[in-house]
């Protein structure tokens, strides 16, 4: 009985919240063409979107937080293929191999990574888990059983 009441009340609240909602969706495509260079959002936005400034030196470290709270916004400029260059389930190219003509990008694993990974993997294994923890690990299994 109590459970039922709680469910009914929650549904009712949802309906009220739903019918009173009135925000404009983030545009499907960002209204201004920002080109292909890494953008400085503060050039055009003085509001909170400026925080997503991609030129900030710590943006790469922070993009995961923004992706988890404001993914709609990313979608207005990035299709999924963009994220998939680095966030793959299974791939045989390092991002830096596919994007060898974009040295300004902050790509993981530049250079000879088979040597360096033994060091990075010990010092910060948590960062590797994000991409290799449950996926993109078929190659690792060749040496790590």
């Amino acid at each position: 009985m109590r459970n039922k009441l709680a469910i009914v009340l929650t549904l009712l609240l949802m309906v009220v919240l739903y019918s009173c909602a009135n925000t404009n969706s983030i545009p499907r495509v960002h209204p201004e063409n920002v080109g292909h260079a890494i953008p400085d959002c503060t050039e055009c936005h003085t509001n909170s979107w400026g925080a997503l400034n991609h030129r900030a030196p710590d943006f790469m470290g922070k993009h995961r937080f923004y992706a988890g709270t404001a993914r709609q916004t990313c979608r207005s400029c990035h299709q999924e293929d963009f994220c998939t260059e680095c966030h793959t389930r299974k791939d045989e190219f390092k991002p830096s191999e596919k994007l060898s003509d974009e040295p300004l990008r902050t790509l993981p694993h530049r250079g000879d990574y088979l040597s360096q990974h033994k060091i990075d993997g010990r010092i910060n294994p948590v960062s590797c888990v994000k991409c290799h923890g449950r996926q993109n690990n078929e190659r690792c299994a060749l040496c790590h059983h």
Binding site: A56, D58, G61, V126, V129, N137, C140, A141, H144, H145
Partner: peptide, 24 residues
């Protein structure tokens, strides 16, 4: 000028518990 700081604290027993790549 842009400044940034970050802090992360990770408990490996909890973070790595459900990882399936043996090395990690």
């Amino acid at each position: 000028v842009r400044l940034g700081t970050e802090y992360a604290n990770v408990n490996l027993k909890d973070y790595l518990a459900n990882v399936t790549t043996s090395a990690l």
